[in-house]
């Protein structure tokens, strides 16, 4: 792994942390469900860095959280978050980033914006929800249907994030094409 890749991975992990610490990267609050920028960081990592580096960046971020750094949105951190009911989502993050990046890498013929939107929907929403719901069923012993219904409130917010990620990817592809490492 090159020095450049290591630094990119570390920077994306730091970016995830910054997204959680920023007072509120004002994304509209929908129906009282606050939309944290951090799950958008998962989509961004996959879209920007590609499968391997993107998922490593998220893993590195979670490793720091596990070590005790309160970097999850709302100042959450420590081993406790991995014992909580949302652990499924956290495990889903690196996998989601990987899938997002993989789709991004496999759709090089598509324009950046639709490719990024497609990748983020499948990886950042589909995969992350899948892990999150399985987590709720196992850890919180919720019936599958209840877990799916409870999850539904996040869909509108996450679709907004997909839109933002697609626009951001497009902007970066124009402003600094080499930064879109998933397509380099």
């Amino acid at each position: 792994m090159t020095d450049r890749s290591i630094v990119q991975i570390a920077f994306y992990a730091a970016l995830m942390a910054a997204l959680g610490l920023l007072p509120k990267v004002a994304i509209p609050v929908l129906a009282g469900v606050p939309i944290t920028a951090q799950s958008m960081g998962v989509m961004l990592a996959g879209v920007m860095l590609g499968s391997v580096r993107g998922s490593l960046a998220i893993l590195l971020f979670l490793f720091l959280v596990a070590l005790g750094a309160p970097l999850l949105a709302g100042g959450n951190g420590g081993l406790g978050v991995f014992a909580g009911a949302s652990v499924g989502y956290l495990i889903g993050w690196p996998v989601g980033a990987f899938v997002t990046g993989l789709i991004m890498e496999r759709t090089k013929t598509l324009p950046v914006m639709p490719a990024a939107a497609l990748s983020a929907i499948i990886g950042g929403i589909g995969v992350v929800y899948l892990f999150g719901i399985v987590g709720l069923v196992i850890v919180a012993k919720l019936p599958v249907m209840a877990a799916i219904v409870g999850n539904g409130v996040y869909i509108p917010g996450d679709l907004i994030k997909v839109a933002i990620v697609a626009v951001v990817a497009q902007t970066i592809a124009r402003g600094l094409p080499s930064a879109l490492a998933s397509r380099a």
Partner: peptide, 25 residues
């Protein structure tokens, strides 16, 4: 204050910065 429009330039500047840091490393 705090518009989502800042996310693209934020990611851009961070990545530019990371190029410099990689060089220094």
């Amino acid at each position: 204050q705090g518009s989502w429009r800042l996310i693209a330039p934020f990611a851009l500047q961070s990545l530019r910065l990371s190029e410099n840091v990689a060089e220094a490393l």
